[in-house]
């Protein structure tokens, strides 16, 4: 028989609280270093783009925000599946906590995209495939948060949201393709996002820094949300009361 102790550990909010407390600085410090360092590098030291001038520098926030917003949804859907299959409480907490962070990052991606679009495309908003599917991702996040708030019973809220998150995850590729196709059907060729291979290494390196920084930042903030939720849920247990009275 395999040793399942590691698995049961993850089911214990108390163990996770203590474990994540040790993890926090290892996420927070590199996240801030990479984000701040990458931004300073990108803003001050990378040469200006010969077509877009300085406006392209918003890429160092825009692309990481968008990438992590999408990755966050996948993480949330995975946590939802784990919660439905194994009834793991921690997964429900992770799912609930990931939604507002993901929504905020999606909004940031849309906002920075609009700010970038104005000088380069001459308009704040284009019904481009990529933008539209990110907008829909934003709606999916908001629908999930709204559903969670509507339930009074916490367990029912978690399970209902888990079903919705998984349905949404199945739909994301469908939505993406449909939007892509819709775009190609109805609009003449328009400006496309820069592919990764066509970006110059001097521009790419700070992007990689902020991208990995953003992933770590997401992990850090997620842990903070999860820890707050654990404390809230376990507030009547002895270990939480001991923890609070210590301080």
């Amino acid at each position: 028989m395999a040793n399942w102790q590691w698995f049961h550990k993850w089911g214990s909010p108390r163990w996770f609280y203590q474990f994540s407390g040790r993890l926090l600085p290892w996420l927070a410090i590199p996240a801030l270093l990479l984000l701040v360092g990458g931004c300073v590098w990108g803003l001050a030291f990378v040469p200006a783009d010969f077509k877009q001038g300085n406006s392209f520098r918003i890429i160092y926030i825009h692309v990481p925000a968008a990438a992590v917003a999408m990755g966050g949804y996948m993480l949330m859907a995975t946590a939802a599946a784990v919660h439905l299959i194994w009834r793991m409480k921690l997964a429900a907490i992770v799912m609930k906590s990931a939604a507002p962070i993901g929504a905020a990052l999606t909004f940031l991606a849309l906002l920075t995209g609009a700010v970038w679009g104005k000088p380069t495309w001459g308009t704040w908003w284009v019904w481009d495939a990529r933008i539209t599917s990110v907008l829909i991702l934003f709606f999916l996040y908001l629908g999930l948060i709204a559903l969670h708030q509507a339930f009074e019973n916490r367990d029912a809220a978690a399970r209902a949201c888990a079903v919705l998150a998984i349905v949404g995850a199945v739909n994301i590729p469908i939505i993406y393709w449909s939007v892509e196709w819709w775009y190609s059907l109805h609009q003449p060729a328009s400006i496309k996002f820069v592919g990764e291979s066509t970006i110059h290494p001097t521009m790419l390196r700070p992007l990689m820094a902020t991208l990995s920084g953003m992933y770590l930042f997401f992990g850090w903030v997620l842990l903070l949300f999860v820890r707050a939720e654990i404390i809230e849920r376990e507030k009547n247990t002895r270990w939480v009361q001991a923890l609070v009275s210590d301080k």
Binding site: L140, L147, I175
Partner: peptide
Amino acid sequence: LIVLPLYI
């Protein structure tokens, strides 16, 4: 709110 994004 839940259903409209999935209808797209």
